[in-house]
Amino acid sequence: MMMISNSTKLVCLKGAALQQPNRSMATLKQIQMRLKSVTNIQKITQSMKMVSAAKYARAERELRQARPYGDGVKAFFEKSGAAEAPADNNNGKVIVAITSDRGLCGAVHTNVSKAIRNELSTELPDTVQTQVFCVGDKSRALLQRLYSKNIAVVANEVGRKPPTFLDASKVANELVQLNFGSGKIVYNKFKSVVSYKTEEVPLLSAKTMLAAPKLQSYDSIDEGVIESYQEFTIASLIYYAMKQSACSEQSSRMTAMDNASKNAGEMISKLTLTFNRTRQAVITRELIEIISGAAALE
């Protein structure tokens, strides 16, 4: 956005310089000021890129350790057939939005919110069927305008430091208190440095798990074990989703800041060119004035 408005201003500046060559003294100063501010912005975006590159490396390393948490649960859902089991419709639905507090990272947060918005838009107006649990201020900010009634809990202070399992278990404990029958987590799955995909994983209640058709393929399972396991799946899925989304966020911020620095570089070269041309024009005009003044005296 900022870049666009800057470049339109640049066009205006150029136009002004062409129309009123006599006023070029003022434009010279203006161009100089713009040049300075763009250079400062470039410095900031460059250092932000460096910071997020370092954070990304750490997030990626930690993600590797966190993957089994999610993969294990997903495998259980699949093999036991719990994902296809009839959902527990007695209690409400819940959607967990995994984002963070921080912006300037491309479309990661928007994608999550958009997915949830699409889901909520299918509901009847004026009824709250689905509760939304926002992890991170960004999803709250993006959802509160249209669906503030659906928001049940907002968790913030997410994203400053890498998420820990303790963070995830706190979120899980808050989530359990919502008494949901079924639900899902929407997060950004990290694919590579340049790509991520918005995905969702189901959250199942203990009842749904017990009703899974192929539960017999697992040994020595009783209600108590399933109850404990269900609590653990929520925490570990949230942990997995938080790690994935932290990693996608950092990688996306890296790309975004890289692009911003590149755009700033482009603007700087254009502005320098305009600056030099204007300065040359001023010098030429002054020379003409002096010479023609001297010629008039002779």
Binding site: A152, V154, A155, N156, R160, F165, L166, D167, E174
Partner: peptide, 17 residues
């Protein structure tokens, strides 16, 4: 270091925190 948590929660009621 893995023993710390910073997450804060705000319950929302009827569209207001």
């Amino acid at each position: 270091k893995r023993d710390e948590t910073h997450v804060k929660f705000t319950p929302w009621i009827k569209g207001k925190p």
